[in-house]
Design a binder for these strands. Sequence first.
DNA 1: TATAATGTTTGAAC
DNA 2: AGTTCAAACATTAT
Length: 243
Amino acid sequence: MPEGPSIVILKEEVRQFEGKKVIDVAGNSSVDIERLKNKTIRAFKSWGKHFLICFDGFTVKIHMLMFGTYRINERKETAPRLSLIFLDGEINFYTCSIKILEGDINDYYDWSEDVMNEKWNPVKAEESLNKIPNQMICDALLEQNIFSGVGNIIKNEILYRCKIHPESLVGKIPTEDIKRLIEESVIYSFQFLDWKKNYELKKHWKAHTKSTCERCNLPFIKKHTGIKKRRSFFCTNCQKLYQ
DNA sequence: TATAATGTTTGAAC
DNA sequence: AGTTCAAACATTAT
């Protein structure tokens, strides 16, 4: 479910309810969701993997974590964490994290950190990377305050495209390669979006879950890398290690 | 059937 | 006090 592009798809799918009033609420969330009843949705937004439902004066923040799902105008068998009922439809969220952010949503998020946001600022990302020269690039790419929306799939794919070993240290990677990685984080995220919409995302994976490098015909290394210990799939022949 | 996986927060332990 | 790390959450495919 997660990764930024999937949340962009969700945002597009619920656009029909923007400006609509929530006529009933249900769900097993531990936060006070009753307060949504009879309130009007002003906007749906997203910041990376965060899905945001904006009301007057507060915002519901939904994070799908690893297993979150949703249904629009239909229901799953299992109990919803949050159901929003409208006159002409409903949105149901399952097994997600729900929090309420009080006040102006712009006080919580820097939109220029979101690789899929129109305010995305690649220069800021480069400056942020310059501040963490000793971290591995596999960890840096997953930093949501630098590359909001990038997840483990996108990480693996862009490192492969840019021919950078995931355990390379940020400060040792040539500037031009850093710039290229930042560019690819956006390019791949939007390709991910298109492919996912067409149900053909996995078909285009070149690294993630792969066992052979199609450039070299050599076996991939599969290893849990970095402080975050997330799966990395890489080719030691064509992905250069800077350390 | 057990395991691992597109993720993050929390709080105990050091 | 700052860092580290396991636990917790929870679903589904292999």
